[in-house]
Design a binder for these strands. Structure first.
Lengths: 172, 172
DNA sequence: CCTGAAACATAATGCAC
DNA sequence: GTGCATTATGTTTCAGG
């Protein structure tokens, strides 16, 4: 379920100040040019290029994406949905994970400790569409016992930028 | 609290098949070249360039970012934290929103219906670091009455790709 | 390790249709 | 509104300190 990656302990000791700055900049602007980055972190463009390639290879940079404005695209309703399963067999959770993975409305799904088994973030155009999704898609999955949803009233913060300050201390 | 945007109803009717394909591609790969995109959606590179500029201007594309691997960067602990406030005055919620916005560990924060007032997704290097954050940062904010956290056991799905199928129907 | 210049690739724009 | 051709930007490689 959790896959072991090439990138782990051995990588973290390889990150210097420049790498961390690069990661921070790229989190904020994934299309910054090497020249721009070079200027900001005081390095040559060619070094920036090489270091980014390294960071990509090492798996620290997962991918580059465009973030779209949900509201502008008619996606006005976000809900957090707690799901409890019937029995907790390997097979049961396996198919649930798989099915959820194919549902576009589910942006995030985590297995959590606590009352529920899963917590999902779901995005739909409207309340009827949400209701429809819950009743006809999610609750129809095998083994689903209970579904509880909290509608989002307003978004206070929503970022993809990981906190990196914990890496700034001892390294290089 | 919800800001009215230039981009709304009037925009949606302007989106044709090509625009939707472009948005879908850019959500998957924010660094795809115009030539690549042109080939995939059967249009010239210059058209792709112009359309993307339009989509950016119209605010459908919010920004481009690099997504980093949390685990590879030593960020192993995700938690969903429910927060209830003492009283619900404008001022109270205002400062909470503001403070939460400055906390790097908080990747997402939504005001929700239901038991709690807010639901946050928090990312830290370790359990002690989470505990530290909750006790010394979050619970210290003025007006916070109750904090309940659910630790994430495993990530099943985590995407930034919005569902766009609802736009494919009547338009152009 | 790093820079800087050359060779290469991609993006933006004016123009003809 | 579209594709093509040009110019302007950006990226990568490689010689040299």
């Amino acid at each position: 379920m959790i896959q072991t990656n090439h990138a782990h302990l051995n990588l973290m000791i390889e990150l210097d100040r420049f790498d961390l700055q690069l990661l921070a900049e790229l989190q904020a602007n994934g299309r910054a040019s090497n020249a721009q980055l070079a200027e900001r972190i005081h390095l040559s463009a060619s070094q920036v290029s090489r270091r980014i390639q390294r960071l990509e290879q090492e798996g620290l940079i997962e991918r580059y994406v465009a973030l779209l404005r949900a509201e502008a695209l008619g996606l006005g309703v976000t809900a957090f949905v707690s799901v409890s399963l019937e029995r907790h067999g390997e097979q049961q959770t396996g198919t649930f994970d798989e099915q959820v993975g194919t549902m576009d409305e589910v942006l995030e799904c985590f297995a959590v400790s606590g009352d529920a088994d899963y917590l999902l973030r779901v995005l739909t155009p409207s309340l009827p569409a949400l209701s429809d999704f819950l009743l006809h898609q999610l609750m129809r999955l095998p083994g689903v016992r209970n579904v509880k949803s909290n509608i989002v009233l307003s978004g206070v913060k929503h970022t993809t930028q990981l906190p990196l300050k914990h890496l700034h201390h001892g390294r290089r």
